[in-house]
Write a protein that binds this DNA or RNA. Structure first.
Lengths: 129, 129
DNA sequence: TTTACAATTCGTCAACTAACGAAATGAAGA
DNA sequence: TCTTCATTTCGTTAGTTGACGAATTGTAAA
């Protein structure tokens, strides 16, 4: 790995929203609208953040129809070790604990209240009750 | 560790000059003028970079008279593991290999040619032949 | 086909960062 | 004390980043 590759990786985790997103993917995949709900950011902002994590090879995407699911990329050694370090270091942080309970609610909430809002669109099957 | 503490740490290593400086300290302490020689940056810039690494608790300082020596801070768990990861991931990178041989030259070069320039100031005892 | 819509890309703005030289700091030596 | 000088801090400038809404893309349903 080059020094530039390494700094791309560090830059990817030098923003708190991206760190929170990465850790949210710890034991499940999530779609952009769920991450938007978690981070309380505009969807375009979330998409940008996720593309930076993807470029750093920390996450990967799985596309199903109109939906894109993000999950941890477990094919890269350094990235995997860094993700493990982030999880280990932050698992007891207030923000991450709060996020964990918010994620539970998000996974249990009506899909309509996430992406589709009042339109009742079927966005994120993994969150189905 | 809080998410903000973690991002400070990531930001500290999201600049290639700081990564190179950190790894240069792998098995020796160095003073600002030696790091300036290695990185080929203005001394004020090097000082700023090192203060960012210090704030992130990746390095510490030892002051002796007018000189300040930087070395790895081995008192912090996460920082130590991150430093180890950086070293492991980059030890074979071209930049770091080139730096290693430059550091040898710096340690062997006349002190006058570093800090003191033509003035013959005794800057960095650790570089004495 | 046409419409709907999740996600991405684009354009813009405010805030931040890395670089430098100049000025300030502070510890030795004259 | 006064000077020297390694380092830090300050002030400035150019380039980068994170945020948003608007426009675009691409897939699926009507």
């Amino acid at each position: 790995m080059s020094v530039d590759d390494f700094t791309v990786l560090m830059k990817a985790l030098s923003d708190s929203n991206r760190v929170r997103a990465l850790i949210a993917l710890r034991d499940r995949e999530l779609c952009v609208c769920q991450l938007m709900e978690l981070l309380e950011l505009a969807i375009s902002t979330v998409s940008k953040h996720m593309s930076i994590l993807k470029q750093a090879k920390l996450v990967r995407t799985r596309k199903t129809g109109r939906w894109v699911y993000y999950s941890l990329d477990n094919t890269q050694t350094t990235q995997g070790e860094l993700t493990d370090l982030a999880i280990k270091s932050l698992i007891e942080s207030e923000t991450i604990i709060r996020d964990a309970s918010r994620i539970k609610k998000i996974l249990n909430s009506d899909i309509e209240e996430l992406c589709g809002k009042q339109r009742g669109a079927k966005c994120c099957p993994s969150g189905d009750k």
